[in-house]
Design a protein around this nucleic acid. Structure first.
Length: 173
DNA sequence: GCCAACGTTGGC
DNA sequence: GCCAACGTTGGC
């Protein structure tokens, strides 16, 4: 969310900036349990190779922001917990390495195309908040992840959505 | 496995 | 700059 013509953020003018996000991952690839076992329960969030998602990461995701972790292409499809952003955008070095799955020959260390952030596990929900539960909550009808054709791996979440999903999870934010 | 939606590529 | 072809994502 950027006032594009001037390069300022809404928050520079005292407006509430976006503070909540949803990050997608496939449980087979990197699940919340992988993160729970990681050193300091912290990891870098690499592999974003979509420009709109990259722009969110680069411009808007800030230290302290809250993140829902969503398991896509998984069983169950669900928000499984929350993360906290502990380091803002920096170059995604996995794009430089030909052995990496998300290698991108066009991204160079002196002019990186892709960025990543660091996240730390905040809480694993006692029970996953399934996609069906999300769809059943009519206050969440506008949630980006529920929209048809919504494929971004980084999506904004509103304050209200942050609160309501925690309520569905039966935990405090 | 199917297929709709979306992003990217490349010829023109 | 247009747009058809193609590849990927991801829910169902």
């Amino acid at each position: 969310m950027r006032l594009r013509n001037f390069g300022f953020r809404y928050s520079d003018f005292g407006f509430p900036r976006l503070r909540y996000w949803l990050f997608k991952t496939e449980a087979d690839c990197y699940s919340i349990d992988h993160l729970a076992k990681a050193p300091k329960q912290t990891t870098f969030w690499d592999g974003v190779r979509n420009y709109q998602a990259r722009n969110y990461l680069r411009d808007d995701v800030k230290v302290g922001d809250g993140v829902f972790l969503y398991h896509s292409n998984s069983d169950p499809l669900a928000i499984v917990g929350t993360l906290e952003v502990v380091k803002a955008a920096y170059p995604d070095h996995t794009a430089f390495d030909p052995k990496e799955q998300h290698y991108d020959e066009k991204s160079k260390p002196d002019d990186p195309t892709w960025v990543m952030v660091d996240v730390k596990l905040k809480q694993k929900f006692p029970q996953p908040v399934t996609r069906d539960m999300l769809k059943g909550a009519k206050e969440l009808a506008q949630m980006v992840v529920l929209q048809k054709g919504s494929r971004l791996s980084i999506m904004p979440v509103t304050d209200a959505e942050w609160r309501i999903v925690h309520k569905l999870a039966g935990v405090k934010p």
